[in-house]
Write a protein that binds this DNA or RNA. Structure first.
Lengths: 219, 219
DNA sequence: ACCTGAACACCGTTCAAGT
DNA sequence: ACCTGAACACCGTTCAAGT
């Protein structure tokens, strides 16, 4: 009985050999979390070009350990941004609770912008198109579908032009923030200015033909 | 007679000792030009993160020679961008020949955008705010004053809202280009799309309060 | 006076050696 | 099984040595 063929258990979930998914050592999961926390803080302050040495130092581990958990710096960035992306989702959900479609639309854009202003890493991820990485596709779906709903509502209410798509919103928001001077004294609310101009440009009345087809996420 | 005091000649242009402005050696001026040419090409293709080693290689000189002419990579960038900036000026002059103020305004924005789409280095310089370097202040004046005139005309004709300034235009144009996916297949005209939305947002009718004061160049 | 390339301090990444 | 730090190939920059 105790000699029951192990091939049995491997057949339970398919025909390939199950790669013995043992749970990791306690210090490993702890170190991984320390790395993610340190990276989240470092990226937020310094942007995505915070060095891995700096992050390893903050986490109190060797650089080798960092690369054992995240084979490349990009992988670490993905992990951090994945949790940061939830800010979009939270902002979208808050906006959807607003009954007025036009106000909900504006609220969403401003909240999304705010998240990127507060976290330099998130802004970098947007403008450097880290977000479009296939690894982040799944975590994007939720935010994208919420964004879709907010946009559609506003369009049906007639307060936003019909020829824009969800994909446009992200680029426009990031553009509003990234374009201004990085930190000119007393000009840290400049993104509000450009967001307003863009929102005005998104109104349906008298809108001119866009002349270029919209971008599209892989969904 | 031949012993005439050299202090005489130095007094001609002020009281400080003139630092003997001998004209440089022939190979030096040639090398300098080779470096600038190579850098212009490399930055245009690869953006501003083209390496100095690559540029030195293309120019056929040692890296030491490059740094002798341009003490830092930034200095080289400034030199290249200074000539590239003339594209703005040329675009502005062409636009001013257009009698209709609204068309002139649009023509100017699209031409400026085109220059940045064709030259990745110029785009990088805009979004990374290399343009705002004090060394480039002088060469910006001309482009800025032309831009001022185009904007003022359009505003007086009532086709552009009054609460935007010249400084806004540069940020908006760069934003329209930089925000989209770097090179998604068949989406290289996406900047036209966002430029159109922004231009629509710049119309005076029904414009909402911007809520943040404009940026300002040091002029 | 100008040119050159080896050398330096950084970066992301790898890997032999430890426990 | 996981951790560590020295080592590597890059980057921008410097400088002793050549002509």
């Amino acid at each position: 009985m105790a000699t029951a063929k192990s091939s049995n258990s491997s057949k339970r979930n398919g025909d390939a050999a199950a790669p013995a998914p043992r749970r990791p050592r306690a210090d490993a999961v702890r170190n991984r979390q320390l790395i993610v926390d340190a990276a989240t803080a470092a990226f937020g302050e310094l942007g995505l070009d915070a060095s891995v040495a700096e992050i390893a130092r903050r986490a109190g581990v060797g650089t080798g350990t960092l690369f054992r958990h995240f084979p490349s710096k990009d992988d670490l960035i993905h992990a951090v941004i994945e949790t940061r992306m939830q800010e979009w989702t939270v902002a979208a959900e808050a906006a959807l609770s607003e009954p007025d479609p036009g106000k909900a639309f504006e609220k969403f854009l401003f909240a999304a912008a705010d998240a990127q202003v507060r976290d330099r890493g998130l802004l970098d991820a947007m403008t450097q198109h880290v977000i479009d990485a296939p690894e982040l596709l799944e975590c994007n779906r939720q935010a994208v579908s919420l964004s879709d709903e907010i946009l559609k509502r506003a369009q049906q209410a007639g307060v936003v032009r019909n020829d824009v798509v969800t994909e446009d919103l992200r680029y426009l928001v990031s553009a509003a923030i990234a374009s201004g001077p990085r930190q000119q004294s007393g000009a840290d609310d400049l993104h509000i200015r450009y967001l307003r101009i863009m929102i005005d440009g998104l109104r349906p009345d008298g809108a001119s033909a866009l002349g270029a087809k919209p971008p599209s996420y892989a969904r």
